[in-house]
Design a protein around this nucleic acid. Structure first.
Lengths: 246, 246
DNA sequence: CGCGATTTGTGCACGCCTTCACAAGCGCCT
DNA sequence: AGGCGCTTGTGAAGGCGTGCACAAATCGCG
C-alpha cells in the first residue's frame, strides 16, 4: 500500500495531513476501538497487542490490524500498539478533538433521556442546545440547558457553531425538523424517529430505530425456535454478536 | 460473525413453511419495509410497486425486489405487491405475530425512556418487566409497570416467558446482567451499555451505542471540512443516508 | 383474442469486506 | 553480536452484497 504518513504531498498547502480514505466498515469500528483503548489506558496499560485490543473490542485480530494499518501503522512489531498514541490518532481521525457542538430537537420521552446522557459529553461532544415545538416544554431546564422553541433553531445553529443535529421527535415532525436543520447549515443528522429522511447531497444521516433492533432479534428468536423443532438440534452454534453500524 | 449452518432439511414435516435462509443484510431491512408498508396501508393503498415501496423505505428498488424474492414470490408482475399480504408475510418471518415478551434491566436515564417508548408496544413487543439493582428505584411505577429488583429476574423470565432482554445499565453492570439473563434462559439481548458482552453460543446480542453513532458522523464532518479546504471543492457529492444495522 | 404497457424476479458482473497465512521487523536474552 | 520468540503489516483468496439489465409474467384494452 502507498501509505502516506505525515510526509505530505508537496502541493498540499493546508496544515492538515492528507486525509486518509478509510473504508466505511473501518470507520464504523474505530469508535469501538477507541472505547476499548480508553478502558485499557485507565487500567494502566501502556501498550496492547492486536490480539488483546481485538478481544477488548469484540472483533477479529486480523480485522483490527487491517483497520489500523489503514490509518498508517502506529504499532511496533514484537510489542504492540502504544495505547495513548493510538487514542490520539483515532480521536484525531474522528475529529473528536474538536468537541463538536450538537443540537437536540425533540425533548419528549426519548429526547429527554438523550439530553441527560453522560455518554455524549464524555466521548467528545457538547450538547449545546435543546429544542421542542411544544410550548409546554419550552423554557424547562434539562441538565442545565433551557429548552428553546424550534423556531430559534436557525439562529442558534449559526451562533453556537452547531454541525450535528439529533432528531428525537415523533416521525411526523422529523422531516420538517431535518429541513430546518439543513437550512440552518447542519450537515450531519442522527435520526431517532422511525421514518426515512430526505436530505440534499452532502448531508449525512444516520438512523437509529430501537424497534427495528428488537425486530431483528425477534427474527433470530423465531429462527432458533423453529430450528430446535428439527431433528438435528443445534450443535455448537456460534453465539452471534453483532454491532450496529453500517 | 455468525457461523450458523442451519441445514434446512427438505423433508420438513411441520405445517410451517420451511424457514427461509435469508441473508443478514436482508433481515436488517425487512423491518424498514414493514414500517413503510404499515404507513401505506394506513394511507389506503392496496398494492404497491417495488419502486414505490423502495422509495418509502429509502432503498434501491432492485435491492428491495431481491430481498422480497428471498422470502418467496408475493408480488404480481405488472401490478406490484399486495400490501396486507406482504405485511402478514414479513411479520410472520420476523416472528412479530407472537408479540414477544421483553424484560428491561436498568431504569436509569435511558432505561426510563425506553420503558415508556411507545414504539416497542406498537411494533410487536410487550415490555413485561422492569428491573434495577438500585433499591431506590425498586418499587417505582413506570408506565404501569413496577420496577423489581434484579434478583427476581430469573423467576420473572421463566414465569412470563421472556425471550428478549434489554440492557440499559451502566457498562460496569452490563456483563453481570447479561450473565443473569442468559442463566434465566434469555437467548436474545439488546445492549445499550457501551461495552462488549461475552455470551455463550446460541445467544444473540445486538449493540446500540449512541455515542458511536455520533462519532461516525463526526468523522464525516471532519472529512467534509478537510475537503472543502481543497481546490476541487465538493462536486455533486451524494448525500449519505445510512441506516444502522449489521 | 391478441397486443402493448407495466412490473416482477433473477442471472451476472463488479466491488467491498473478511479471513487466512506468512514474511518482515523488533526487542530481549544469552 | 547473534539468535529466538513475538507481533505487526499485507498479499491473496473467498464470500457476501449490490445494482444493472433483461426475460418472464400479468393486466387492460381495443
Amino acid at each position: 500500500m502507498s501509505q502516506q504518513r505525515h510526509g505530505n504531498t508537496p502541493g498540499n498547502a493546508g496544515a492538515v495531513p492528507a486525509f486518509p480514505d478509510l473504508p466505511e466498515a473501518t470507520i464504523a469500528r474505530l469508535p469501538e476501538y477507541l472505547r476499548a483503548l480508553h478502558n485499557l489506558a485507565e487500567a494502566g496499560s501502556d501498550t496492547i497487542s492486536s490480539e488483546g485490543l481485538a478481544a477488548a473490542a469484540g472483533v477479529n485480530s486480523a480485522k483490527l490490524r487491517k483497520d489500523l494499518s489503514h490509518l498508517g501503522s502506529y504499532g511496533t512489531r514484537g510489542v504492540g500498539y502504544d495505547v495513548t498514541l493510538l487514542i490520539d490518532q483515532i480521536e484525531y481521525i474522528l475529529g473528536l478533538d474538536q468537541r463538536r457542538a450538537v443540537a437536540l430537537v425533540g425533548v419528549g420521552n426519548l429526547g429527554h433521556a438523550l439530553a441527560g446522557y453522560d455518554g455524549f459529553a464524555s466521548r467528545g461532544f457538547r450538547i449545546v442546545a435543546l429544542f421542542d415545538a411544544d410550548l409546554e416544554q419550552v423554557g424547562k431546564a434539562i441538565n442545565g440547558l433551557t429548552v428553546r422553541h424550534v423556531g430559534e433553531l436557525r439562529r442558534a445553529v449559526v451562533e453556537d457553531g452547531i454541525t450535528i443535529g439529533v432528531i428525537s421527535t415523533p416521525p411526523s415532525a422529523a422531516q420538517g425538523v431535518a429541513d430546518d436543520l439543513v437550512a440552518a447549515g447542519v450537515t450531519s443528522i442522527l435520526n431517532f424517529a422511525p421514518c426515512v429522511l430526505s436530505v440534499p447531497a452532502g448531508v449525512d444521516v444516520r438512523k437509529v430505530d430501537l424497534a427495528i433492533e428488537l425486530q431483528i432479534l425477534s427474527f433470530h428468536e423465531h429462527r432458533k425456535a423453529s430450528l430446535t423443532a428439527l431433528p438435528g438440534g443445534l450443535v455448537g452454534e456460534g453465539g452471534n454478536q453483532e454491532a450496529v453500524g453500517s
